[in-house]
Amino acid sequence: MAILELLSSIFLVMGAAFFMAGTIGLLRFPDVYTRLHALAKVDNLGLGLIILGLLFQVPGLTVALKIILIWLLALAASSAVSFLIARRALNRGVAPWKAKEQKI
């Protein structure tokens, strides 16, 4: 039991860490495309890890499947929305940030 709890905690903490990383990315990345990277990947991974952690706490199979379903939904939503927003940004002519510009 203790091992399960430990595993659960580890995954949860990792998930939270990813969330934090995502937030930092959201705040520090230079343009909308890079921020979308942060949002679409890191946070979903964070959510996935938290769900993984919670899987050790579930009372039954259906609950487990349900939270996995939730994760899948979140994935689908965020990846599709990222595409939509990124495309719109490109459409509007939001120029991607370039590394060399930063050096100047």
């Binding site: 939904l73 689908a76 939503a77 599709a80 595409f83 939509l84 495309r87």
Partner: peptide, 16 residues
């Protein structure tokens, strides 16, 4: 073609 992403999202999500 670019509408396809949202289209398929709807196709999957709406029955759900």
């Amino acid at each position: 073609p670019r509408m396809q992403v949202l289209l398929w999202l709807a196709r999957v999500l709406v029955p759900l």
